[in-house]
């Protein structure tokens, strides 16, 4: 190392050193700041454009947008569309998927953090993450081509034994082909597993060791350790993860579009119904977006979906905001 010329004068504390802002600093922080401003402005602008396009169609709409069940948007001079049926199918199928996925993901997250041998926990977690890497169109194909026929005996049994319950009534599409909300919900549930598991796992891993060791010292079995320390600590994170999963399920497009059979009959709260979710309806009509008025109808539906996912995600976040122990 080359020694620098020594300056004998010590730096004086009295004179405040002049702060030098270098041009490089100014440019770089300016760039960073403008990137940030860019995305905020971009999202705001896009929101405005969307509204601007939805409003004329909503004004021209002859049906009640929120409470009508019919959807006629092909003819721009005669628009008559309502989002109710689409909204109900969207929420119904997503909640069905969530009900299946929640307990299983809880089990997986506990298995990976508390039960699996240390050495295997990582590769096992990797396997679960692989589920998230599969594109949704492949899930859709698998669901429609392979899973749906396999489920036929199960749905037949449910239909004949529990047919008195509205959930298992004979639906508005042919159950034997399996293009029903039941199949779609199961496929959605599989797609939710890695999402809910990944977040829950992270939270469960942060359970304070002191609490776990304390419970062990009191003679708790492994399950009692989980019940008394891991679950109370991770509950908020688990619920938040599930809500995020719900948000994902609400917006899932192509898998649902491939699996569900369209029908002109209205939705009747049966798992063996067909129909369309908001997302799948938009995707199905994508090729016909030729007139701005017709497209506006779908954009209005898209806005409803956007609001729905926004609210669900906000609720999800509210569970973990301000929780110091999760940070």
């Amino acid at each position: 190392m080359e020694s620098r010329p020594h300056d004998p004068r010590p730096p004086s504390a009295d004179q405040p050193a002049k702060v030098i802002v270098r041009p490089g600093d100014r440019i770089f922080s300016g760039l960073a700041k403008s990137a940030g401003i860019l995305i905020v402005v971009m999202i705001a602008a896009i929101g405005v454009f969307l509204l601007a396009q939805a409003v004329p169609s909503l004004i021209a709409n002859k049906a009640n947008f929120l409470f009508s069940r019919e959807w006629v948007a092909g003819d721009p001079t005669n628009l008559s569309f309502g989002v109710l049926d689409l909204l109900l199918v969207t929420v119904f199928s997503s909640i069905f998927a969530l009900i299946i996925a929640m307990p299983i993901s809880l089990g997986i997250a506990l298995f990976l953090t508390q039960y699996a041998p240390r050495r295997l926990a990582r590769p096992f977690a990797y396997v679960i993450d692989l589920l998230a890497a599969v594109p949704s169109i492949i899930y859709g194909l698998w669901g429609a081509v392979v899973l749906a026929p396999t489920l036929e005996p199960v749905t037949g049994w449910l239909n004949s034994v529990f047919g008195w319950l509205f959930l298992f009534e004979t639906g508005n599409v042919d159950r034997s082909i399996g293009q029903t909300i039941f199949t779609a919900g199961i496929v959605l549930a599989v797609m939710l597993l890695p999402i809910i598991t990944a977040i829950s796992r992270e939270v469960f891993e942060r359970t304070p060791t002191m609490q776990i060791e304390g419970a062990l010292a009191l003679g708790a079995t492994r399950w009692e350790v989980v019940r008394t320390t891991v679950l109370p600590f991770g509950k908020a994170g688990y619920i938040s993860a599930s809500m995020l999963g719900l948000g994902r399920a609400l917006g899932e497009t192509i898998a649902v579009m491939i699996i569900l059979a369209t029908t002109s009959r209205t939705f009747g709260w049966s798992l063996f119904d067909g129909g369309d979710t908001i997302a799948s309806k938009i995707a199905r009509a994508a090729a016909e977006f030729n007139d701005p008025r017709s497209a506006g109808a779908y954009i209005a539906a898209g806005l409803v979906l956007f609001l729905l996912t926004f609210v669900v995600n906000a609720i999800a976040r509210s569970f973990i905001v301000g929780k110091k122990e999760y940070e």
């Binding site: 995305i39 999202i43 609400l250 899932e252 979906l305 996912t309």
Partner: peptide, 11 residues
């Protein structure tokens, strides 16, 4: 960014 991360791909 929070909003964007929750936006469905169709939206």
């Amino acid at each position: 960014v929070d909003i964007l991360s929750g936006v469905p791909s169709i939206v």
